[in-house]
Nucleic acid binder design. Sequence first.
DNA 1: GACCTTTGTTGTTCGGGGCAACTTATCCGT
DNA 2: ACGGATAAGTTGCCCCGAACAACAAAGGTC
Lengths: 412, 412
Amino acid sequence: MQAPRRVGTGTNQEAVRRHNLGTVLRHVHRAGQLSRAELTRRMGLNRSTIAALTAELETLGITERTGPATVSAGERQGAGRPSTGVRLAATGPYVIAVDLRVDHATVARVGLGGAIQQRAHASTAGLAEAWQVGAAVATLIRKVVTDASSSAPLVGIGIAVPGMVRRTDGLIRLAPNLEWHDVSFSSVVLAALGVDIPVMVANDANLGALAEHERGAGVGVDDLVYISGQVGVGAGIITGGHPLEGVGGYAGEIGHLRFDPTGPPCHCGSTGCWETAVGGPAIAAAIGSALEDVAQLPQHLRQLTEASPELRRIGGDIGRGLASIINAFNPQLVVLGGYFSDVHPLVRDEILDGLTCAALPAALDSVTLTVPSLGDDSVLLGAAEAALDPLLVDPVASIGTALLDVPARLAG
Amino acid sequence: MQAPRRVGTGTNQEAVRRHNLGTVLRHVHRAGQLSRAELTRRMGLNRSTIAALTAELETLGITERTGPATVSAGERQGAGRPSTGVRLAATGPYVIAVDLRVDHATVARVGLGGAIQQRAHASTAGLAEAWQVGAAVATLIRKVVTDASSSAPLVGIGIAVPGMVRRTDGLIRLAPNLEWHDVSFSSVVLAALGVDIPVMVANDANLGALAEHERGAGVGVDDLVYISGQVGVGAGIITGGHPLEGVGGYAGEIGHLRFDPTGPPCHCGSTGCWETAVGGPAIAAAIGSALEDVAQLPQHLRQLTEASPELRRIGGDIGRGLASIINAFNPQLVVLGGYFSDVHPLVRDEILDGLTCAALPAALDSVTLTVPSLGDDSVLLGAAEAALDPLLVDPVASIGTALLDVPARLAG
DNA sequence: GACCTTTGTTGTTCGGGGCAACTTATCCGT
DNA sequence: ACGGATAAGTTGCCCCGAACAACAAAGGTC
């Protein structure tokens, strides 16, 4: 009995209301706590309109109002009546975020506002088949919802995968390091859980970029590139404030940019991809670590205080590869994620040298290099953000389709 | 006395009206002529709403209605009352488009709908200073408005430049082949014309991409890359239906992607950029043409029926470079503009071979290579589209600030 | 020619944001 | 301590735009 979904490029009043309600929630989601007066300023709407919108969010159980006396730290300033605050409800909607890696998986229950409420972790080493991994993930999911309030709605699941994911349906086309081809992992997980809720599967680098853009090093930056170094090398790109996807959703496969045609063959079939120069195996070799240990690269790198000449050369290669990326995308920020965040402090100068000699000055001027400010949780929190997105687009619809009484329903 | 510009992320009713009016106009602009019934279908709004919106466009003098009997070719089908048509008014708003190249400039008067109403062309060889070129362009502009109706409003000027253009203000940061640094060409042209109207300066490849997306080979394609081969090599990229700009507006400088570190030095200071392998000078050398003739490459290429071995090798290099671009952006379409459209028929197989061995299968599956369907006018029409954009966003405001009585005002 | 289908037109309804007046709550100066 | 200034919440009303329904118009179909 739900209203027919409108199509077409026109905007009607219902859509305006949806959009404004979602935008209010998005602001609260980003800022955590916010006064209605501040919302009025940021959205440019009338006070009374903001009051109506926040009231609706309250009746939906998403937010609650804080007394005007909340800010009591003695630093209030400016005359006038203090503004009522809006904050996220303790038993408000939440999502499940899954960060699937080559040999382990992390699952978290994440509320609106991006707070991790509960998390669980398990090794997946030795689990080759997707259904085995799916079962392990389902177990972790059951674990993280045990303490959830039964009145809090579960809005969806977000899953980060190291591979190429088709954006239309979340099919994993190819995850080389998991050795998966054409796996519908969302179906696998839902089957193991025995429920039906929206699942969003996406590439790990894209989600890392999303998280750093929303609540990490890239807040307020509308053009950024998140470089993911896990085993392979990939990138998540935000341009104009929106994720760059490409037709299929495979954009950002910068690990296979041509780097040195005289270099070694790459597992992709080509020769001299950037990944062969700066990928996990190359770095492992440069620091004398075993190739089987590629998944543990960050730990090994953190023990180093100085870079070997081999690692220094790789630093230069990182810089020269980044130069191509900066020329192509003209980002304001490059976030070095995965093991790159541990390589960066060791070879910062070499990276910059490589950059400077190969990037165009105009593009180089406006770019900054940094590491994720969310640490190792970028990708996990990005999966949460992706799963939360429908809620921020249309809160009413999303709450309507959410799952209630979750601990009991998943326990069965 | 104009209404204060609303800011903020909220949407109000006024904005809805603006958006819908602009969207109606955008549909007519794209389709040329359209029935109100068709508009109703495409926009998903009510018949009466469409009637009100089209009526407003009529009173603004932008469109006019065609009698229901317009379609008389005997191919009418379907029962029911025939729909009133909406078409662009003959004396409706128009823009000036300028395609500035290394040794010549083309200027056109372009109406809504993308029809070139008048055009002019002149060599700029020997004009080194920006003000000299600006004066030449102003002369061409005066020429193309001579026959314009004095009641038709001039909405703006769009200028395509082969260089890096800052998007915030249209400053030309660097145009290597014009040898310009930090030139505010919009000021130069406006000063030469003695009027003040909106001028949009942008990179030629970006505008070529825009035009092919709007009315060329990329209609309906939301992810495309337009490769521009003039003297240097650049790209204009559309992702998710929107131009990819980057912070400064310099995105798409793919001519300086790293291609072969053992290759020759590039004028940018780096070594082995893709441009050194497939740029104008390399192609001129491969077909035995003089280096001073780079601007005439297309003419020379069109006389060839067969590719030399050198040109074949360049074809492979084009393919291998495109592979990187396809991996990075995952486009649905790659449009080979500039001299590449003349190289393509000669070395199609070599390009495809290079592509196949270096691009990722998932990305390669969904991509098509083609040449501009607007021919040599892509960039010019893209400049027109860019200048028309404000009109399609807010018709009322744009008409309000437009210049009237243009032939007389520019003649002085 | 009767009936059906589709569209334009017109008047009305509905809903959402803007606005103004009033109330409430705090700061600040005397 | 007290009143004015300031800013924010609340309330009722208005305006505007899209939806809707009823009717008229124009053509197709049998």
